[in-house]
Amino acid sequence: MTPQTMFLHRRQVLTATGALALGGLARAQQPPAGGAGYEPQRGQSGKDVIWIPSPDALVNRMLRMAQLTPKDYVIDLGSGDGKIVIAAALEGAQGLGIEYNPDLVELSRRRAQQAGVAGRARFEKADIFESDFSRADVITMYLLPQLNLRLRHHILALKPGTRVVSHEFRMGRWRPDETARIAAASVHLWLVPANAGGDWTLSFPQGGQTVSVPMSLRQSFQMLDGNARFPDFEAQLREARVAGTQVSFGFTDALGHLRRFSGRLADDALTGSVYDFSAGGARAPFSARRTGAAPPLDGAAPAPESEAEPLGTE
């Protein structure tokens, strides 16, 4: 086995680097299409990638990282043999697999029926780039970096807090919120962030009274930076980020107290708790109101393919 072959086997993927207009995995070549005994062949060639199933342990880790619950609706992009959607359905969730290969769609439906979850695991033959997956609470995928990038702006437009889990490949500048390694494979998790950017008025208790200060937030994917402006100084925010609708940041106030803010964003209002670590972690409520329009979220526009990391990078 050559080093290149070993590398591709470790990554469990081969690319077909032509046009990337359609999603999904390969059409099987043997046995004849539509047969009840159809089974996909590991490594069979397809339009964009070859078909390689995700190991059971990795599927389990994907669902654990997504914090799957029976209330969730899972959409698997390029669902192959249906393994992930069926696994989610066995845990009580509802799921949809979007797959371009009609033979794999029929195979997935048969396997869901055999597993007793056909009522919760649905599969459709469709192009992932033309599909609506706005209903999803959890998105799963095992595609390629270029395909992930083509989907990124659609994923960032989903409701904040949607969990996105990818077997192996990332999404350019949008860095994962969590990564796990299982043997030679990786699993990456992202939480779709709310848009917290813009100008705000922040109100919180300080020295026995409520003070209000202007605050500016600049957001790149889930990462924030910005400042709070007091009469005599400007405090740069620290440890600022967005996790779904949860926004957190900190700074040292006019009294020299280190404060940590954690709140939930709804439209142009942010409410939550502020912790005063210079007073033993005392907690009090705070609020903030956005004073203008939210700027476009970084990543809202289609991504250039140049952002895709080459195979083999971590």
Rank of each mutant, 00 (worst) to 15 (best):
E239R: 14
V164I: 15
R264M: 04
A183T: 07
G18S: 09
G119H: 06
M62H: 08
I155P: 00
M223W: 13
T2C: 12
R27A: 04
E39W: 06
A28N: 11
P145H: 04
W200K: 03
L14R: 15
A269T: 15
G312F: 02
A308E: 09
A26H: 03
A183R: 12
L22E: 12
T162C: 14
H188I: 05
V211W: 07
A228G: 06
R229K: 13
E168L: 05
A157V: 01
A89V: 03
R238M: 08
A243Y: 10
L22P: 01
W174V: 02
R61Q: 15
R283N: 03
Q4D: 13
H257N: 14
G37A: 05
R152W: 07
Q246N: 11
W174I: 03
L255E: 13
S220C: 10
Q206D: 10
E106I: 03
L63Q: 04
N195P: 06
I139E: 09
D298R: 12
E305V: 09
I139D: 03
R283A: 14
P53L: 02
L311C: 06
A21F: 11
S54V: 15
P40Y: 09
R11F: 10
R175I: 08
A243D: 12
K125D: 07
A240V: 06
G280F: 09
L77K: 11
D137S: 08
D72V: 07
W190Y: 12
Y142Q: 01
T179S: 13
R260W: 11
G97Q: 01
N148D: 06
D177E: 06
P3G: 06
L270F: 08
I50T: 13
A121P: 08
M141T: 11
G34K: 04
R170V: 12
L20N: 11
T162K: 10
L90A: 08
D177A: 14
A28R: 13
L224R: 09
A288L: 08
I182N: 06
D298Y: 15
A279P: 00
F251H: 15
E314V: 15
Q222S: 14
D199N: 13
I139K: 05
G244W: 03
A19T: 07
D268M: 05
Q30V: 15
R229W: 01
A16F: 12
Q236G: 08
V85Y: 00
T69E: 05
H9E: 14
T15Y: 09
G226W: 01
T15F: 14
I84A: 00
G95Q: 02
D232H: 13
A57Q: 13
E305L: 12
K83Q: 11
G80N: 01
K71F: 04
T69I: 06
D72F: 02
I98Q: 03
Q12W: 11
V49S: 05
V138T: 08
G208Q: 08
